[in-house]
Design a binder for these strands. Structure first.
Lengths: 196, 196
DNA sequence: TCAATACGGCACGTGCCGTGCAGTAGGGTG
DNA sequence: CACCCTACTGCACGGCACGTGCCGTATTGA
């Protein structure tokens, strides 16, 4: 059996990623170096370079390994409640210490490394988007969303403000803020002349 | 006159920033080094370090110097048209080559350098936000926006999707997309049972 | 004439990069 | 059992950029 070999290799891979996360949490991604990871993990640099072509992709793997739990959308029949649930979980996980700063660093790295950007998209953003779209489609079928509304746009209108706070202004993404974004996205900002 | 000295210094500062922009456009921000800027600008490293404490803040100054033209909001009386105008100009300037990639890099750098993040906020985001808020307030006074709508949230709902595309998915921010974001922000995604 | 200021040129020690090479430990195979 | 093979450690290397220090110089203003 070559399973033994594979198991050892997987164990080392795991160790390296966890060490990278530890170091990044302690000193920040800017201070994260392959040499430091190798030293602390008790591993040769070759062993890291054999698995990852760059610091950025190692870091990507390490951060995405946190998402094992996943951020799937529930379906209680109430689209607003379900969206709030997922947005709250996402904000708690990715918007706060200890993982918030690392997720920010990861997106920052994606801005100058196309490989990281592509991998982040394919392995996290797109699956997450697909799940959101599926839940939105169900809601639209049930008449909770205007029939002519582009659901991809809906996803962007909901996510955009959260990322704006996370990446640009640094303001915290609170539960209250999520509620207000949801209300704004559903009712719009135009004056409501109708009866109601 | 010490004006002579000041003029010479200002000239060098200008030269250094333009050289940094040139290098960043050619090889990307990742390849931008103080040494390279110094060499091409025909300047000693000291001369750069005397002006900027880090590569990130030099790059910030360089990129923000492009915005001399400004992105002020017009006021034609039609808030949607005016927002579209500014959003289009912003997308053209910051969302496309040659400056789009550099603006992305700048925001990326802000994710791991708090100094850059703070300076970007204070010197670009906040003034831009204030201008947007002023224009939105006028519109609200004229009844074009619901009286109870939080204008700061409005700004985030409008900007968020554009930044989401710029930084996360990399999809282009087209004029059509801006139109659709505006429509979504104003009318909302809830079904419209009303008359109309 | 003389001090002050800003600069260029040069060099230094440090840290990390990515790679190469030799030696080794462990399972897998005849 | 002896052999091979793969993955690994350890060490070393050249290269690059960092941030700083020192020295000589040119321009400015007292």
């Amino acid at each position: 059996m070559t399973d033994q070999r594979a198991a050892r290799a997987a164990g080392r891979t795991e160790t390296i990623m966890r060490t990278a996360l530890d170091l990044a949490r302690e000193a920040g991604y800017a201070k994260l170096s392959i040499e430091a990871v190798a030293a602390r993990a008790g591993v040769s640099k070759h062993t890291i370079y054999r698995r990852w072509p760059s610091r950025g992709l190692l870091f990507l793997d390490a951060v995405l390994s946190l998402n094992a739990a996943g951020l799937d959308h529930p379906d209680t029949g109430d689209i607003v409640a379900d969206l709030r649930e997922v947005m709250t979980r996402a904000a708690d996980l990715l918007g706060r210490p200890p993982w918030g700063p690392l997720y920010r660093d990861l997106i920052g790295e994606a801005q100058h490394d196309p490989d990281v950007a592509d991998a982040l998209n394919q392995r996290f953003i797109q699956p997450q988007t697909a799940d959101t779209l599926a839940r939105l489609q169900t809601a639209k079928d049930q008449g909770q969303i205007a029939p002519d509304f582009d659901l991809h746009l809906a996803m962007e209108v909901l996510s955009g403000p959260l990322y704006f706070r996370l990446l640009i202004t640094g303001e915290p993404v609170t539960n209250d803020y999520i509620d207000r974004v949801l209300r704004a996205a559903f009712t719009g900002m135009a004056p409501r002349p109708g009866p109601t």
